[in-house]
Each structure stands twice: as structure tokens, then as C-alpha cells.
């Protein structure tokens, strides 16, 4: 009897280790973080725009079509990596994309977009990070899919990869179908 009890710690340990192994090996994305905002309307914000001389007011910009919201900054290396995919969303999928420029210098942002190409229909500025807090942004880049009635449908933390690109396109296709 005693002998069986003594072997219990090792059994527990091996079970836990196997679960860890399983989680490491499966195609898992730890940066897919559930958001409390999913299926809720977008948080309201009002701020300056990078290109336009008028204020960006969120309630006027969302709610007509499916929109992608992408938090980016020129100082963020992964943002540069994902930029190709953001451009593809615009050129190939014909999506309207709003790029929220997070804690950045507007001049640098302008130069950056000139250099890499501008897929954004508008760039509201989030100079002090307030908008990102309201959106529950963990770390940039982060991308949100907003349905045509202004509701957050999907959130991705980290740079867009080929897999995520496909996933978002699939999601948008189903959103359009439901409509």
C-alpha cells in the first residue's frame, strides 16, 4: 500500500510534463488572447488624424463596412514585418484599414509610410496610448476585425503571419456571407 502512494508524485509529474509537451508541440498560438471586447461595439475615441486636417471621430468612421484596425508604430520591429500583409489586405482584399499610430512621432510615421507604402485609409494618432488602453491592447502590433455594424469580431496580438492572414480572410468571408 505504502509503495503505491510513494509512486504518486512521479505519476503526477509525468502527467503534467506530458501536458506541457502536448501544448508545446501542437500548433498553438499563445498570443491569441481572448478579448472582453469580442462581440461588443468598438470603444469610442476622438483624436487627430495623420493625413487629414480634421478630427478622427470613431463613431463616424465605423459601421458601414467591414474594417480592419491595426495598431502600429514606426519603432516597432514586428510592425515592419507584418506591413506586407497589411498592404495585401488593402490591395488584394480591398479592405478598408484604419491604422492607429501608437505612441509615435507623426513625422516619423509619415516617412515610414512613404517608405513602405500606405495601406491605411486613415491614421488616427494615439500619442499617449489612451486609445490602446481602451481597446485592451497588450502590445503592438495588434489587429482587430470590425464588422459592418461596428462590432469587434476578432483580435490578433502580434504580427500578422501567413496563417493569420488566411484566418482573417476566412473570417471576413463568413462575415460577408452572414450579411
Amino acid at each position: 500500500m505504502v509503495k503505491q502512494i510513494l509512486i504518486i508524485p512521479s505519476i503526477f509529474f509525468l502527467i503534467i510534463v506530458s501536458i506541457f509537451f502536448y501544448l508545446l508541440i501542437i500548433d498553438r498560438n499563445p498570443s491569441e488572447i481572448p478579448s472582453n471586447l469580442i462581440n461588443k461595439t468598438i470603444p469610442f475615441f476622438e483624436t487627430e488624424s495623420l493625413f487629414k486636417n480634421k478630427k478622427f471621430i470613431s463613431s463616424e468612421e465605423f459601421g458601414n463596412e467591414i474594417v480592419l484596425v491595426n495598431f502600429f508604430a514606426t519603432w516597432c520591429k514586428p510592425c515592419r514585418d507584418e506591413h506586407g500583409y497589411i498592404k495585401k489586405f488593402q490591395s488584394k482584399e480591398k479592405l478598408r484599414i484604419i491604422g492607429i499610430n501608437y505612441k509615435d512621432d507623426p513625422e516619423k510615421a509619415n516617412a515610414w509610410l512613404k517608405d513602405l507604402g500606405n495601406p491605411y485609409s486613415d491614421v488616427p494618432l494615439d500619442k499617449n496610448g489612451r486609445i490602446a488602453i481602451d481597446w485592451g491592447v497588450y502590445g503592438i502590433p495588434e489587429t482587430f476585425v470590425i464588422s459592418s455594424d461596428g462590432i469587434i469580431k476578432y483580435r490578433h496580438v502580434g504580427p500578422i503571419t501567413k496563417k493569420i492572414y488566411k484566418k482573417i480572410n476566412l473570417l471576413i468571408a463568413t462575415l460577408k456571407l452572414k450579411k
Partner: peptide
């Protein structure tokens, strides 16, 4: 896994 498996089985 090596450290834990070995030591805990040894303990058992």
C-alpha cells in the same frame, strides 16, 4: 522531465 522523472521514480 529527466531530472523530475528520475528523482521522483527513485523516490517512489
Amino acid at each position: 522531465a529527466l531530472l523530475g522523472g528520475y528523482s521522483l521514480i527513485l523516490f517512489g
